[in-house]
Design a protein around this nucleic acid. Structure first.
Lengths: 358, 358
DNA sequence: AGCGTTTGATTAATCGATTAACCATTGATT
DNA sequence: AATCAATGGTTAATCGATTAATCAAACGCT
């Protein structure tokens, strides 16, 4: 094709000033020895010509692309916007770009997704694994964002502590009989959250855990949670592991004529986009994704820029252990957001779903 | 640094077989003239060594990176997962990667975000603009996904027709007094949706349009929509421009003691993740993001691979018109999803919010 | 003055894939 | 048999930035 490169490059700037391209490179990167006023002139000329360094050229020479891969096996995750935004921001603050990959929920394609990213030459991977999926050796540093209790985890929110906060909040409101509602018992995150809740509930508080996903799988989508029955049997609070579940519970209760939080308090997790705008607004736990992203990206970059010296000399024999990186802080605290879906416990005596004034 | 490249490259394969690297390149790309069995042997050797072509080398030589940029000025958009997933899939099916950029909602940083992508050498941009923001000249092909009525639009869902579908559905159910609820009157998408709704409602149907965002801006977050008043004044259906709004309306009505769809029918738009799981499940409009993405990516790639010959010979003088590409089909139909939040119109006589059996 | 050192800049090799231009066979044609 | 074309492959240049290895000049020091 012989596409004539249009944009200005190092050589063009060098030619315009009558110096060598090496000097221009040094001046712009501040590495070699270049006199102050020549640096000045080069900078100016570069701006004037609208110089944009070629990533391809740099990548080829340095062996680093300046791009991180973001893998979300479960992209349907409603937290995705938050995660993507936070990661992109953290990366671009550090001069990196973010390439996304999606594996459509299937485990087999997760490997493909990672493969695609590797082929594109990413310098590192950020992986939000789905239900504890292990990542095989990939040949580049990997930051895993799962739960503090997951082996190989780099950084994550302290889901356990978040669970404790929610449980304490409900406990403080006087709730004595609480339903803990999870979705997938195989999820590390959800187990941590539920674990934290249980740990924070004193012996005087009765609680029961229900996992939704197995029920739906066995009973079909029509399977009911029998929430009205549970409430009538004395449950005054339902703590879920996700705002999505909380929303489901909330609307189901409201349709059945119960008042939230009048009859039952409901809590969620994650502070999703809809949580503040529903009525009643959801009491939930917010995670500081920006901070998590910052730590994950920092750890990744540290590994990337420091890993060269220990480069394995035997290219054929890949390491079998994933190169998950470590961070100084591996768990960031979560924040309790109290809104309107929780209130004082009012033990349910007689069932009057309708016909009463607030 | 002198990082010794570990992975196998063309030269290594060539050396292993005693041929030239050019032949290997030709064999793998199927371009030059190479005998059938040599191609065979080269392919085999490449697999054996686990050869992965270097993107940097290829990009440098060909001037194309094989990466598309995805710009979502409004990343908080709950449709983001769907969009990102569809785009990534369409791109990777065509051998391209997707680099994301976020402008955190601000218009000024939108330019920065695009700039970052350009600097990373993307071959083309996919832009989902926020409220009709225009994209300046960027120097690479751009696919805009907005509304069919937006000038410069490449492809999008037929929001107008979606609005018509929803309106017809409500009309068929016998609703005569309908509230149309939008959020941002400056949004092209929302205007199309509302426009379609209005167009499909016959003269015998009374409707009123309310925009939420201006009300909230003037009246603060506490401003109420006075939904109960509206319902009591005879509105039997509320058609919103988004599932998020529909959810808001739904929960507000339920809390006020109204039954959906018993007293009022509620509809949304976009079929967001929570829409099927709330009670009652939302009747809404689903857009075929996969198809939109496929069309956008195809149009972009066509432009990318065909644009070389008309490369401008005057690099300095950038085009002032954005290079938005055109597609054969610019509007893809939407699909009406009827669930439980809509039902026959039952004109509201006496207000009995509570105390009645369904 | 003579020697070593610092400063400032240049040369040239390199990363890996692509491709235009070229060379060497073999086969076909008149 | 001589010429031409097709086939199969090689050479070498190129994309743009980086950087190790030089080189030349200016400076400091005894």
């Amino acid at each position: 094709m012989a596409v004539p490169r249009t944009g200005p490059n190092l050589t063009k700037i060098a030619a315009a000033l009558g110096v060598s391209s090496a000097t221009v490179s040094n001046a712009l990167s501040g590495k070699g020895r270049v006199s102050a006023d020549l640096v000045q002139k080069i900078r100016q000329k570069a701006d004037e010509l609208g110089y944009v360094p070629s990533n391809a050229g740099r990548a080829l020479r340095t062996g680093r692309s300046g791009v991180l891969g973001l893998v979300l096996p479960d992209i349907a995750n409603p937290l995705f916007p938050q995660i993507a935004q936070a990661m992109e921001m953290a990366a671009s603050n550090n001069g990196y770009g973010v390439l996304i990959a999606d594996s459509r929920g299937e485990v087999t394609t997760q490997t493909d997704a990672i493969g695609r990213l590797i082929e594109r030459g990413v310098d590192g991977l950020i992986v939000i694994p789905r239900r504890g999926t292990r990542i095989g050796a990939v040949g580049c540093p990997v930051a895993m964002v799962d739960t503090p209790s997951t082996p190989g985890n780099t950084v994550s929110a302290d889901h356990w502590e978040g669970g404790e906060q929610i449980a304490r909040h409900l406990s403080d409101l006087g709730h004595k009989k609480i339903l803990l509602l999870g979705n997938d018992p195989a999820s590390n995150v959800q187990n941590d959250r539920i674990g934290g809740m249980k740990a924070a509930l004193g012996r005087d508080i009765c609680h029961q855990t229900i996992w939704l996903e197995p029920i739906l799988r066995d009973g079909g989508t029509t399977a009911s949670l029998k929430l009205p029955y549970l409430v009538e049997s004395g449950v005054t609070a339902i703590a879920t592991v996700s705002d999505l579940l909380a929303l489901r519970v909330l609307t189901e209760l409201q349709t059945a004529g119960f008042r939230v939080p009048g009859h039952v308090s409901v809590t969620g997790f994650d502070d999703l986009i809809f949580s503040p705008v529903v009525t009643p607004a959801l009491t939930t736990i917010h995670m500081d994704m920006a901070q998590i992203a910052e730590i994950a990206v920092a750890a990744l970059i540290a590994e990337i820029t420091g890993t060269q010296k220990i480069k394995s000399t035997t290219p054929q024999q890949k390491r079998t252990v994933p190169d998950t990186v470590m961070a100084d802080t591996s768990r960031v605290p979560m924040e309790l957001i109290i809104r309107s879906s929780t209130g004082p416990a009012t033990p349910y005596q007689t069932h009057i779903p309708n016909g009463e004034t607030l």
